[in-house]
Design a protein around this nucleic acid. Sequence first.
DNA 1: CATGAATGAGGGTTCATTCAT
DNA 2: CATGAATGAACCCTCATTCAT
Lengths: 181, 181, 181, 181
Amino acid sequence: MFRRKGYDTTTLKDIGALAKIRAPAIYYYFSSKEQLLEEILNIGIARIHDAVQEAVDNLAAGSSHRVRVETAIRAHLTALLQHSDYTAANIINYNLAPRAIRARHLARRESYADCWRDLLQRAQDAGEIGPSVDVNLLRLFLLGALFWTHEWYGKDQEPIEVMAEKLSAMLFGGIGGRLQE
Amino acid sequence: MFRRKGYDTTTLKDIGALAKIRAPAIYYYFSSKEQLLEEILNIGIARIHDAVQEAVDNLAAGSSHRVRVETAIRAHLTALLQHSDYTAANIINYNLAPRAIRARHLARRESYADCWRDLLQRAQDAGEIGPSVDVNLLRLFLLGALFWTHEWYGKDQEPIEVMAEKLSAMLFGGIGGRLQE
Amino acid sequence: MFRRKGYDTTTLKDIGALAKIRAPAIYYYFSSKEQLLEEILNIGIARIHDAVQEAVDNLAAGSSHRVRVETAIRAHLTALLQHSDYTAANIINYNLAPRAIRARHLARRESYADCWRDLLQRAQDAGEIGPSVDVNLLRLFLLGALFWTHEWYGKDQEPIEVMAEKLSAMLFGGIGGRLQE
Amino acid sequence: MFRRKGYDTTTLKDIGALAKIRAPAIYYYFSSKEQLLEEILNIGIARIHDAVQEAVDNLAAGSSHRVRVETAIRAHLTALLQHSDYTAANIINYNLAPRAIRARHLARRESYADCWRDLLQRAQDAGEIGPSVDVNLLRLFLLGALFWTHEWYGKDQEPIEVMAEKLSAMLFGGIGGRLQE
DNA sequence: CATGAATGAGGGTTCATTCAT
DNA sequence: CATGAATGAACCCTCATTCAT
C-alpha cells in the first residue's frame, strides 16, 4: 500500500484491513508506523541489492566485464519491476520519509552504490570501459535510468531481458550513427 | 515546502508561515490544498519543458542533431537542478498526488515526452543516431537518468554543463574501451 | 435564502451573490448577520399580522363573527403561502434563532396572538362560538394548523380561498356525520 | 441538543460533552454528524408513528371511529410532548436537513401520513365523518395542529388527555354556537 | 494474539467579520 | 457605497496510538 498510496496516505486501518486484523493489532508486530516504513524501505533496497549481487556472483568465472554489467542491469530491473512491491515502495517513499529514517537508510543505499562502483571500476581497470569515461557519473546516470523505470514500465512493455540487453548495447556501443563519424 | 517535505507532510499552516499570512488566507488565492499542488506540479513540468524547447529553438539553424540533443540535456538539467523549487517538487509529489490530479497532469508529461520523441526521431532519421537504436527505449532511459539527478546532485558536484557534455559523449560515443572491440 | 437553507447554512457570501455585491458590503446595510435575521423574522410576522388585521378591518360593519374568522383564516393563509418569502423564513428559523433574538421576537408573536384572541373571544361573547368551547385552546390549535400549512402546501394544491372556506366549515360545523348523532 | 439548538448550532464537542466522551469518539458510533441527524430524525418520527399505531390497535374491537381518532390524537400528542426529545428534534431540524437526508426521510413521514389517511377515510366510509368533508384537507390541518403544539405546549398547560378530548370535541361537534344556526 | 473503545493532536476548511482603500 | 485582503475562531473529521480486556 505504501507503494500505491504513499506512506502518509496509507492508514494503519488500511493496512490492517489488508492483513485482516484491526489496526491496533499491528502494534503487536511493529512498534510504530515509522518502524514499519523503515523496514519496508530496507527490504526494498535489500531485494535489489541481493538480486544484483547474486546474479553477478553466479556468473562463470571468466565472464567479461560487459557481461557482468549487463547482468547487473538485468537483475536490477527484474527485481525492481517484477517483484516491485517493496522496491517501488522504497523509491516512492524515500524522499518523504522522516529525516531520521532517511539518514539511517542512506547507508544501505550507499552500500548498494558501492556494489556498482566496484563493478564499473573493475570494468574500466580491465579496459572494457574506456579510460576517458567518468565512471562515477556513469554510475549515477545509469542507476538513475534504472530506478526511474518504475515510473513508466508497464505490463505491456518489452521483456525485461530485452530491455537490459538494448540498454547495455546502447551504453557500450554508443547510439551514434555513421554520419557522425 | 512540497519539495522538501512532500504534499502530505506540509501543512497549510507551514505554507502560511512562509508567506507570512495565516493559513485561511491561502484560500483567498487557492481553492484547496489540492489545487495548490496541481498548480505546483504544472509549473514544475512547464519550467523544464519551456527551458528545453527554448534552448533547442535558439540553436543555429544548421546545428547537428547531436548538438541539439546535448543542448536539450543541458537545458533539462539546468532547469531541474538550478531552478529546482517547482521541478523537484513535481518529481517528488507526482506519485503521491490524488488520482484526479495525476490524471490531469499526465497530459503535460506526455507533451514534454513528445518534445523528446521528436528530437530523437529526427536525429535517427538524419542518421546521427544509429538505425538499430530503439529510440523509444532510449528516450525513456535518458529521461530517467536526467530526472533522477535531482536525487543525487548536490552543490559540490561538477558544473551542469560538464555533466551534460559527458553524458552526451557517453551516449553517442559509447562507454566501451579498446579491449572490447 | 433563510427560508430555503436556514440561517446557519446560509452564508453572507450567498446573500451577497444574490444581491450582486460582495459579502462585506452587507455590513453597510446591516450590522451583523444576526440583525439581518431579526429583521427578516420581524418582517415575516408583520406581513401576516398586517394582512389579517387589514382584511378583518375592511369587512363590512355588520359582518358576522364567523365571516370575520373565515376572513382572518384566508388572510393568514394567503400571506403565508402566497407571499411566503419572509413568512416561511420566520417559521423555519425562529426555533433556531439565538436566544436574545427569540426573546425580542416573542413580543411580536404575542401581539399577533392577541389579534386572534380578540377575534375568537368576541365571537364567543356574541354566541357564534359555543360557550363550552375553550377558545384559548381553539386559538392554539387553529393557528398551528394554519402555520403548519407551509410544510405541505404546494403549487398544485387547491386555491387558498377554497381551503379557507373548507377549514372554516369544518370548524364551525364540525366534521361529525349522521351516524354519530 | 438538536432539539434545543438545532443541527448546525450543535457541535460534536457539545454532544461529546453530554455523552462524557471527546468529540472524536462519536465517530466510533456514527460515521458522520449527518448520519447522527438522520438517525435522530428517524427515531423522532418512529416514536410518534409507533405510539399512534399501537394505541389504535389496542382499542377494543368495536370502538367507534370517533374514539379511534381521538385515541390517535392523544397518542400523537403524548409522544410528541411528553417524550419529546427525538420528536421535537425531528420537527425543528427537518427543514434544515441536507437535501439527501430530507429526501430519504420523506418516505417515513409519508408512511405516518398513510396511517392517518386510513384512519380518517374509514371513519368517513362508516359515516362517522360527514360525506361533505374533504378528509385529505382535514388530515393536513389536523396533523398540522398536532405537530405545532410543540411550539407552545409548556409544563404548566392542561393535561394532554384533556387537550385531546377537547380538540376531538371541537372537531367532531364543531365550534359553532346557537346563534349561528 | 487481538479487539473495542477512546483519545490527543492536528489538519483542511468555512465563515462572519474587520479594515484600509 | 463597495471591495480586496486578511484573520480568528471554530468546526468536522482523521488518524496514530494507548490500554484494559
